[in-house]
Design a protein around this nucleic acid. Sequence first.
DNA 1: TCCTTCAACTGGCTTGAGCCAGCTGACTGG
DNA 2: CCAGTCAGCTGGCTCAAGCCAGTTGAAGGA
Lengths: 260, 260
Amino acid sequence: MKQEPESDKRLPSRRIADDLRASIERGDLASGAKLPSERDLAAQYGTARNTAREAISILQGEGLVVAQHGRGVFVRPQQPLMRLGSNRYSRRLRGETGLSPFRIEVTKQGRTPKTECRSVTKEQAPEDVAERLGLDSGNATVVRRENWYFADDEPVQVGVTYIPVEVAGDSPLASAKTLGKGSIYARFEELGYPIARIREEISARMPNPDEMAGLGMPPGVPVIEVLHTGFDEQRRPFEVTRFVMRGDLNGLDYDMPVED
Amino acid sequence: MKQEPESDKRLPSRRIADDLRASIERGDLASGAKLPSERDLAAQYGTARNTAREAISILQGEGLVVAQHGRGVFVRPQQPLMRLGSNRYSRRLRGETGLSPFRIEVTKQGRTPKTECRSVTKEQAPEDVAERLGLDSGNATVVRRENWYFADDEPVQVGVTYIPVEVAGDSPLASAKTLGKGSIYARFEELGYPIARIREEISARMPNPDEMAGLGMPPGVPVIEVLHTGFDEQRRPFEVTRFVMRGDLNGLDYDMPVED
DNA sequence: TCCTTCAACTGGCTTGAGCCAGCTGACTGG
DNA sequence: CCAGTCAGCTGGCTCAAGCCAGTTGAAGGA
């Protein structure tokens, strides 16, 4: 089979993983292709099944393959990223298309967008959010709006928006799940908070089990977390949103002037 | 020990992982604390050592713990992120401090910054880079500068900059490893390319084995990849840099006007 | 023709055993 | 007092075996 000429110092599991990885990178195993079964691999390399299994779990950790119970292990097809642009807050875009940038981006990929507001509640803001809203972290009541974003009924990101109660008042923002034409930033504008600046703090990490389940994520895929703050023309923060998105389906795209 | 009242439907490995995760989140196991040894866990839960091992590998995949051969498994201490701001291209900052934003950020954390230009070569640009530079992807000779960034001698990110040969000419950019006061963007400015706009395309993924080794990354930590394009005042792209940074040590921070 | 059944595949998870290699601290001999 | 040794800890990796649970397609009965 694939025996190397002489003693190969690498550990068996690494060797199997390296060989498979090379096959994938070379294109021998195309995107979506099925890997040999664990039992076949073990036989090919003359190892125990657990060793072949270990090799596959290495590749899983690298995000290269996905296993499907009862079917096999497949090269993870990498779908094009949804590029969320910095223009997604643009008033012009909002007016021209009437569609949210998320919907535009998903449609562009030939998939069907869906958004769902799962809850609107009032509660105490988390510390980092209160800080960014300029509120006392001990006493910061906010409206919390939880939004889920789907492409072809597959969840791809979650956004939780926090709005100080003083800002939301008794407007639709404080209670309505659907916000009507122009969506949330149009409502903010009506309340006297046109969005003029944004700050976005970005990090990447592995999902926790809840996120993994909620977003239906395979192992070996990180999430991108964006802590977004919206400012009005006086640079007053009026809204913070924490986005958590699947790293294999989403990306960010900022285009901006160098200030100063 | 930690036996639940009656039959627990969860699998043993999941149960151990869940318990440990809960301990960590509760703070029972503080940052940096040592977990029970694999053999102890197995004994506590009445399972085989391999099962305890599996539980730990789950937590490793989530980035919660790091194992150290011969010493034990420890709760991964999460260090503060280096926040690379959108102001890092600001001419004023460049002038005022004379320090690069990376050095400022690292110093702010009480660590010692170091940067190292590992190579300066001429080669064909990768396709995505050529595209962003507005060059024919078949015939796009560029200067390639590979920079490594360290904090306390620990590598935290890599940046590979591509400059069209027509832009670099025979300036220091084309060959010198050290670029002198004001660094790279000061040199671009001298060549008639003051940086006026940037575009940054951000994604997150698991590191490949090379990156893992090069950056000394533990398992369960993603990388952030930033494809950065610099534009002059006529919106002509003159430079593309691909940053790959450890996701557990770096973050991004964009503060910008909503255009339009 | 259509549906059911079922055998033969797939991965998921566990067991219990063994050997190796890195680390640490205590003990020992100079 | 110091340096070296070594026992006993740690995780790293593998083996061989077994049972479970999804999936698939072919064989067979209504």
